[in-house]
Write a protein that binds this DNA or RNA. Structure first.
Lengths: 142, 142
DNA sequence: TTTTAAATTGTACAAATTACAATTTAAAAA
DNA sequence: TTTTTAAATTGTAATTTGTACAATTTAAAA
């Protein structure tokens, strides 16, 4: 089971204790490529871990975020979403379906980096630039 | 009172009925340049309109958003924020203080427009690109 | 001035998330 | 391996943010 090993390593590297709940939550996030909410994650992970508490899912996700192995992403709709892809990327977002996908583009990143290197923003120390690319997915079946 | 006249005109142009609550909410949003939450707006506007209902603030803000004179903005922290500046712009955002400010930059917009004109994103019809510029405000008392 | 559709209000409700105390468990120490 | 301990999990309850809805009031058109 290579997948689980990788997850264990990831948790371990982040200095987190290994628990079945944490493994299952991370596995669920990685498999679902849709940036699920805490509630969606709870429903999925409950199948493999009956008796799982919603609170645990919140705690686990929070621990992941604090340790930098998951990013919180907010959309304009209801709940917070969780993204296990932490390398630099942007998001495609469709308002009508509240669907969100990753958008990787090194060329764009280079362009932005160049631009902001010369650009001084008064009174602001820049750390990161994220794009939210808003539009419509063409085959919007959720 | 030029300010109030302008606000009345803005509401009127948007096809909205003029009410003291709506005037006061819009005035509060425009004066506070910090993209306040509904709750903050409620607290402020309550000072001039005692007996104001929180529900009204939500209703009013919602009407503003539906009619395009205010934008909803979500940050990584708790509540939805409201921005009375509706021309194209981006946001500076400080995670530690949850503070947010507008960032206007026509040159950047030109750059992005150019870039995305040539860039086809498979299965996605692009409508808009927004930047969230993350960093620290230098005089940010937390 | 009258009329009426829309806005405001208050209450109750709902969803998403957090606080907290009790229990269990992972993993370090013996 | 067993013991120890700090951390993780759980369940309940509370909180925060926002919405639904019926009754009342009001802006503004007729």
């Amino acid at each position: 089971m290579k997948r689980v090993d990788e997850i264990v390593k990831k948790l371990s590297d982040a200095g987190l204790k290994i628990t079945p709940q944490r493994i299952a939550v991370m596995q669920s996030l990685v498999e679902a490529k849709t940036h699920p909410t805490a509630e969606e994650t709870y429903r999925r992970v409950s199948q493999s871990i009956p008796g799982l508490s919603p609170t645990t899912v919140y705690n686990v996700l929070d621990a992941f975020v604090r340790n930098g192995i998951v990013n919180k992403v907010k959309t304009d709709a209801g709940a917070m979403r969780y993204d296990p892809v932490t390398d630099n990327h942007h998001h495609l977002y469709c308002e009508s379906s509240d669907r969100m996908e990753d958008f990787h583009d090194p060329e764009l990143d280079r362009l932005l980096e160049e631009y902001f290197q010369n650009k001084k923003i008064h009174g602001f120390r820049l750390k990161d630039v994220k794009l939210q690319i808003v539009g419509e997915f063409e085959n919007s079946k959720k």
